[in-house]
Each structure stands twice: as structure tokens, then as C-alpha cells.
Design a protein around this nucleic acid. Sequence first.
DNA 1: CACGAATCTTGACAGTCGTCCAAGGATCTT
DNA 2: AAGATCCTTGGACGACTGTCAAGATTCGTG
Lengths: 213, 213
Amino acid sequence: MQHVTEAVERPARISRRRADKVEERRRELADAALLTLSELGYARTSLREIAQNSEFSHGVLHYYFRDKVDLITYCVRRYKAVCVQRYDDVVATATTAPALADEFAAAMAATLVADGLMHRLWYDLRSQSLFEASFRDDVAAIDASLERMIERIVARYAQLSGRPPVCGTGAAYAMFDGLFQQALWRHLAGDPQAPDTLRADVVQMLAVVTGTA
Amino acid sequence: MQHVTEAVERPARISRRRADKVEERRRELADAALLTLSELGYARTSLREIAQNSEFSHGVLHYYFRDKVDLITYCVRRYKAVCVQRYDDVVATATTAPALADEFAAAMAATLVADGLMHRLWYDLRSQSLFEASFRDDVAAIDASLERMIERIVARYAQLSGRPPVCGTGAAYAMFDGLFQQALWRHLAGDPQAPDTLRADVVQMLAVVTGTA
DNA sequence: CACGAATCTTGACAGTCGTCCAAGGATCTT
DNA sequence: AAGATCCTTGGACGACTGTCAAGATTCGTG
């Protein structure tokens, strides 16, 4: 067996146990790849370096992935699964508009500090997708799911504050994404008050977006 | 002579004409590099490819630049010189708030179409600066000058519309940058209405930022 | 014109890269 | 236990990289 990606319809005699084991190993290798990518960035990440961050040798990567692009797109999809779902309980628990704003802003600031390196990778890969069309579909999917997340936040905030949003969800996502990106840059450049600035900006922007500023 | 970058205090007998010629050649090579970078992106641009986009051989690059990083940081600075100054006549000519908004939005949409590849490079290099500290200072300088440009636009718009901005310039820049980035992604992915969407979003965002939406 | 300095080309260097493959160990089926 | 299949290793391959230096070429100046 080789290039497991498109081998969905493999001979029936291969047990599900084996298939699960393969998928588990792919995840394991993808995690090592994500670790390496978030440390070095796309331009400086090699397959040998990825293998050194795992417990296997570099040859095994071509057993579980067709090529480097296949591995990295798998990583991008896996990244999405880990990343998006964190904000949805914020919108579920908050009962007033200011509380929602505070919790959302706090969640963003916490993400900035805790997962800054991962998001650095995200912006790197999104830039790469401007050049390498192979990544484009996965990047678009992640972007769409992030936009839906923002949409839920804004809609709930508008509902709680009794005012409809004054701009579309695309524009709202672009704004919050821009804020986060700028904060990430400052944070990684060593600015100690980047999280707090982000927090204040996010609270204010939620107000602006609903015309309550 | 070698590594012209730090040779500001070279022997006085070398004429200014020669020094100018050197600077001219550096610009020439940097333009070839910028062309290559905007086509291939940072990760896939090699010195030999740059030289092929110029009329020289690859060896000459190390005659005019210390190393690859020196060349690319020079490119980034040159990029800034070309890029920023386009918007300042917009703020000078517009006499009403709606006119300013329209002209600014039209200028951004035009930039999107005309210099999309150059801005793709900008976002690529800004991402690289999250990993490679060498680029950080130049990227920060460009970001600051772009932010000042946005500040002038917003301030003038606020003045013309008689309402003060409802958010800081940092946040305003982050928002417009996010909008442009998202529009660029869609534009390069083939969305034909990306420029018009950007235009509408920018007009609306100017209103939002002054609380007139 | 001729000499020296500035400029440019060419080829080589030591690495690294993605990819592939032969070989053998590990694991499962019968 | 034996045979078949899966898994992993480690090395080899050719292509490509940044860098450098020696030689060829061009240029300005006496």
C-alpha cells in the first residue's frame, strides 16, 4: 500500500483496525509537521526536519503521504480541526452584550498568547496559498469557517445589544482578522502589551460594528 | 569594492558619478528581484532566478549585495518607496466626505487590480518577518507609513463629515488592511467582483469608523 | 593608446532538498 | 510455525541552493 490519501476503497480484507492505525500515524506525523512548520515557517521546513521532530526517519513520510504538498495540505486541514471550535462556547454562555464582548476579547487575547506560533503558521500558509494554488481550497475552507465564527459572535452581540450590524460578515471578519494579525505581529516582536491592546480594540470594534460606539 | 551597503565612507577619490552608478545598478537588480519575488514568492525565489530576470549573471548579485538577506531587505525598502505615496493626492483633492470615500475606495480597488502581485509579495514578506527577524525593522517601517497614510485619510474624512473617529488609528489601519488582504485573496483566486466588493466595503467602513453608518 | 581599477562571467564548492528504492524487521493470517 | 503483508530504515539519486573566487571584460583616466 502506498499513498494512503486516495486509497479509500482498498481491498475489503484489510481490517478496520489497520486502517485506523494508518490514520493515527498520519495524524502523528502531521503533528510533528505542524510543530516544525510553526517553528520554522513554510520556507524553511524540510521533510528531514519534520521527521526529526517525530520518532521516525524521513523515509516514512513518503509511505503515508504522496509528497510534500500532500503532507502539508493534510496538516492545514488538521490545523483547522483544532483551531476553530474554541470560541463557540463564548457565544453560548454570555447573556449580556458587554459580557459577550469581554469574553470574546479575552478569548482572542488568550489565543494570541497561547497559540501565537500556530497562528503565525496560519498566516504564512495563507500567504503561500496566494502563490501555490494547491493550498487554496483548504485555506478557503478554513477562512470560511473562521468567518462563520465571527458571524455568530457579531450576530449574537447585535441581538443582545438590540442593534443590527452595520456591515456585512465578510467585512467584519476582515476587520477582526486584521486586528488579530497586527496584534500577533507586535506580540511576536516582543511588545508586552500587545494582548491588552488587542483586547481593548476587539471590545471597541464590536461596538463600532453595531453602531454603539 | 565589495558589499556596497556599508561602504558609505569609501575613499574620497571615487567620484560621485561612480557611486551613483553603483546605486543605479543596485536599484536595477532590486527591481529584477522584486519582479521575481512577486511572481514566485519568497520561498521559491533563488538568486539565479533573479539574475535571469535581469540582464546580468547570478554572480553579480554578490558584488552589489552582501548576501541574499541584504538584497531582499533592500528590495523591501525600495518597495515601500514606490508603494505608499499614491494615496496622498486623494486626501488633498477631495472636498466632501462622500467624494473622499469614493476616491479612496476607487484608489484601493485600482491598486488591487494593478499591483495585486506586488501586494501579494508584501503579505508574503510580512509573514516571513514573523519568522525571520532580519526583515522585521523594514516591515515595521512600511507598516508604520501605511498606518500614517490611513490616519490621514480617516482624519480628513472625519473632518469633512464633522464627526471624530470612533477608534484609534492602529485599529483603523488593521481594519482596512484586513479588507484589502481579503479582497486580494479573492481577486487572485479568480473572483471577478473582488474589486467592487472591496470598493463598497471601504466606503462603508469609512462611514462606520466615524459613526455615520 | 595603455595601464589599472571597476565590473561582470563562469564554474566550482559544500550543502540541502524532495524523492525513490532495496533491504530487512515487525506483525498478522493461516 | 511458516508464509505473506505491512511497516520502517537508511542510503542513494539528481537537482537545486547560497556563496565565493579566479579569470575575462569593460571602463575611466593618464
